[in-house]
Amino acid sequence: MAKGKTRKEGALPPTGAGLIRYFDEETKGIKMSPYIAVGLCIATGVIVVLLHVLR
């Protein structure tokens, strides 16, 4: 129990590369799973490549 506390103390604030972010907080936004996120990225890439090919 006490050990857990010890570890907690070393925890740094939720930041990444200079930005203060609170990603662990649930917000009201449109939720998507990481699979959807990856799918969106790939889809965008494919669409732009297709635009180049079909022109």
Binding site: T15, A17, G18, P34, A37, V38, C41, T44
Partner: peptide
């Protein structure tokens, strides 16, 4: 916006921050 989303995936599901 995709960079933003990719960063979130890395930050929440991967290691460290996506930006880094």
């Amino acid at each position: 916006i995709l960079v933003m989303i990719m960063d979130e995936v890395v930050t929440k599901w991967g290691f460290g921050s996506g930006i880094s």
